[in-house]
Design a binder for these strands. Structure first.
Lengths: 211, 211, 211, 211
DNA sequence: TTATAATCGAGACGGTACGTCCGGTCTTAAT
DNA sequence: ATTAAGACCGGACGTACCGTCTCGATTATAA
């Protein structure tokens, strides 16, 4: 997606190698739409006002302008959620333990951010019900994130800091799963500071008492 | 909820200590409705036919009969999902490790069951967007399940099989979170046999290599 | 309405010549129902609360009690309107002119009565749409009234007070029609005192100026 | 009502002096709706299929398209009935007697027309129960017709062909009332040819025998 | 300069579902 | 057998949203 609308932006036809004709798409509309969705969600429009009709109204935009950019509500919402994932999180890092803590801390912070939390909850709720859309999100966003964890773990294995007799996927879930479970299920009780370290260290050390 | 409609059943007015008047609610309708929802979901009606209108049609029931029992779609779906949680899972158990494996295995099996998986995914997707409904589900179903894990862990702590320098809530997430993450996010790729043991043992032993 | 179910009252099965069994119909219910209808109509319930549901509620009666007495709403309303026609109007009379005035005056007074006017308007509106019910009303109530006019006119013809070269039906309409038109169409503007005499005399004398 | 939808047409917002925006209302829908109502009524849909739902279905139109044009069923039906009154009836005329005959003959013909008769009966039945709607109909349609009669009569008075010692309103009812009474009450027994002349002449000459 | 053309906000289009109400029937326990 | 109460199925009510379509107006490039 290299068009005028950056990654995460609306899906441009992308055709017409160079000689585009007619009035170009309004960048202002792009912004207004995405901002309207975020505003609506933050205002608690759990699902009520989150209709294409309401979004168009809130953005001061015609409905056709929405449908010209996205094929439907799910695609729009998916793009909105993607637009919040821009901030590249990971880090090269010193030790494997610190890399893992950094990754989980990033996850935690995002789960805390009012905007991101509400958006994610509301949007995923919509999107997850559409298997194809969800799959696309999975393959573009989630897989990337997961790969970051896998890379760290594989590096740890190579260095001998992580046991090598388990599948990487399972190990990754051991670290990421607990944080996700808290963020997705426990509404927003907490995600207290220090949770990342706590999870990483406990999983590393094990739950059995050590002498 | 100890009335004629068992836990998981429709929300009975519950009034009238004994001298109930008027024609009683039809148990056949109760059954037909819940079965219709399950059937529709299994048939893949991800969200399309999952309308009160469609449910009533599929159940051969008037819409009023639905609204007499539940205040809205979410409440109905919530009850349906609850009706799938009847099978008490846990186990007294011999060792703490075996108890944990049993709990996770139960989780895994349910995640695999075609019916439960589809229902849960579809329904939670609906329900989670309604904070109040979700909260109620959380407090009646999730809390109970979580408590079972907590009990096992506390027993383990008392016995010295589980380290006592971590909060029980965090430890519980370490075990349950990975399985949930897989079940909820990875569509249904796997949940392969042996996953429960793998998770429990790895979390118990830790991820660091042991000599 | 002399018996519990007199002519004009609810349509009793009428079977069982003598040996009726079981609990007898409640006369209180009969009264309550009819009164409820009249009350609702007078209160302006033009058509809104005029539902079987609302009538049963207002009468403090079960719906089945209504349907046990009348086959449907129209039959009930028809009976109510009939119950207002009990007061025998006509008069033997001295001169034909006075008889006609008396008949029209009777019509006028009834058209003025708040109760009768509102009921008639509301009910006929319902009833007229059901051809069979309307026909029955026509044949039992309207025909009788019309016959009274015809009798007077025929007497006048015999006496030489009324021209005999016109059909009686047409002549009857000449007298009754104007009053009805006012009563039915002009909402309730007036029907002023003296209207009956005015109509009768003008129709008798003719509209052409007399020398 | 001078907008794009002529008298008898749907109630246009009428706002926006010139710069109308958005897609304009479909004239095809206008036609389809009115035709559907007429068709349904002619097919005998006394009141059963005469629902907004049924009308929309029969017209191949969304329900919203109905409610965009009329606030409710009564208003729609009222407009339909108005659309049948377009054919200007009266006539300048030679003698007062002939003018009156022409007016009544027009009334008679309309009462006979299958379409108009059925529509009028069914529709007025609906509309009359809503006082405000009825009032509007009265003031727009009935008053106009009545004024035509009044004009004829006043001309007759000026010419000395009509007695001047009666109120015009009463005289008008003497001519129009009989025809209306027949048309509205006698289902459709007749309205035989020559009725107009018969009424006019008899009312003019008077009912008393002449020497 | 003038076409040509894609965009814009606005809003109507045919459908479908919402949650409520009523019609007419049926089923309770109580009288 | 009838009572009041109320549940039953069906279906209409009027509203809202979906995704498409048509308006007149705007804003670009291409001729």
């Amino acid at each position: 997606m290299t068009g005028p609308s950056a990654p995460g932006g609306p899906s441009v036809p992308e055709a017409a190698g160079d000689g585009r004709r007619g009035r170009p798409r309004s960048a202002a509309a792009d912004t207004a739409i995405v901002e309207a969705v975020l505003r609506l969600i933050e205002e608690g429009a759990s699902i009520g006002e989150l209709s294409m009709e309401g979004i168009a109204r809130a953005a001061g935009v015609g409905k056709a302008t929405l449908y010209r950019r996205w094929p439907g509500k799910n695609a729009l919402l998916l793009d909105v959620v993607r637009s919040l994932d821009d901030d590249l999180p990971p880090a090269p890092g010193v030790s494997v333990r610190d890399d893992l803590v950094a990754l989980l801390e990033h996850l935690r912070r995002r789960g805390l951010a009012k905007r991101h939390s509400a958006v994610l909850r509301t949007v995923l709720t919509h999107v997850q019900a559409q298997p194809d859309v969800w799959r696309e999100y999975h393959e573009t966003v989630i897989r990337a994130r997961r790969e970051a964890v896998h890379a760290v773990l594989r590096r740890g294995m190579a260095r001998g800091e992580i046991r090598a007799d388990r599948e990487v996927e399972v190990l990754a879930d051991l670290f990421v799963g607990p944080m996700l479970a808290r963020a997705l299920i426990d509404e927003r009780t907490a995600l207290p500071e220090g949770l990342a370290e706590q999870i990483v260290d406990t999983v590393l050390e094990g739950v059995r008492p050590r002498p």
